[in-house]
Design a protein around this nucleic acid. Structure first.
Lengths: 189, 189
DNA sequence: CCGCTCATGTAACTGGTTACATGATTTA
DNA sequence: TAAATCATGTAACCAGTTACATGAGCGG
């Protein structure tokens, strides 16, 4: 059987995200990559220096990124671009992340909290839920705004990503409303 | 001003989850705790030995758990129970996790993938989306089943947690349908 | 020139993973 | 009793965080 092209190493999610940013934004400095992540409202993407700089060095050693000194010859400033192997590995990750977690259940810390909500005095449980609803509403407004802004992009996928954030936030609000109802029902007893 | 009781150290999410399990299930061995996590379909909770055993030791050193040899004097078998300070810290975490991420945007790897979906040849993008829809439908069936099973629990919150999982899964399916439509629209051009 | 922010990095630490070792119990 | 599996643990590794160091450009 014709052996498929050996993929160097499956990239992690963060590595893939960096590859994706470089793929999309063309040559860019690590700092620009960091900014991209820090602007994201998803807390997963902190874009801390200690994560990004070693990561791009790693990716360059593995041949997925290539860098050269920026024309503006500031200190060590380097512009990174993606290599063909980098693109191949990015595609590989999109198709099948390591562990096959493509459709795994998303993690919601509020779910865990509600799971243990009986450990909280009733009144505190109540305020936790209503505070969270408030915060999520804020989130939803932001997400909707992101949706609107990306609605007319040349690429429809960034808009769909924003829409994912909005829909998830909205459904969590609705779910919290159910939790709230349950709390009130219990209070009534 | 009356200083609030000093909370030892804010616990992490995994620590809080372990405290929660011990709080709920009464005295139990580390192994039982692991089982609890491994049965969860959320990939976040792997319950690997290397995570749990050091963790309960840590919590005992910090005075949040207390252990004694099980009556069945097997090897080193220990039953852990939660202490009052453990309960206090668990409550503290439920109210306000470190970082105030109570209502932060949930992380969805499929969102990231779709964000970079243009990097994929059209046909592969299509099959990624339809495969994911299939997998999520499976997930949704499972989640609904969990919902049903927990519907008549004495504690309604485990049911609400299951419902969260179901709702999130369902909304992701709907969102993926939108992605699918978009792909077909583009194919038509 | 002083201080501020931009930008690139590094070092120490932390928490979780995989893989292994080993003792206890059950089952064939 | 031999093999399988349950149960407890540990060691090496790894990725990401916080905190720091440092240089470069710029505005007062």
């Amino acid at each position: 059987m014709a052996k498929k092209r050996k993929i160097s190493n499956p990239v992690t999610e963060l590595e893939a995200a960096v590859l994706g940013v470089v793929w999309r934004d063309g040559p860019c400095t690590p700092y620009a990559i960091r900014q991209h992540f820090r602007e994201s409202r998803a807390p997963r993407w902190s874009g801390s220096a200690g994560a990004i700089y070693p990561l791009v060095q790693r990716l360059e050693r593995r041949g997925l990124l290539r860098s050269k000194h920026s024309v503006r010859g500031k200190r060590g400033q380097r512009d990174y671009r993606i290599t063909p192997r980098g693109i191949a590995d990015l595609r590989e990750w999109i198709k099948a992340p390591p562990g096959g977690t493509n459709a795994a259940l998303v993690h919601d810390p509020l779910r865990t909290k509600v799971f243990f909500l009986e450990a909280l005095p009733r009144e505190e449980a109540r305020s936790l839920v209503s505070d969270s609803i408030g915060a999520l509403r804020q989130e939803a407004v932001q997400a909707k705004e992101d949706c609107r802004k990306s609605a007319n992009d040349k690429c429809p996928f960034s808009h769909l990503a924003a829409r994912n954030a909005f829909l998830l936030t909205r459904v969590r609000i609705r779910w919290l409303n159910e939790v709230q109802e349950e709390l009130e029902k219990r209070a009534a007893c």
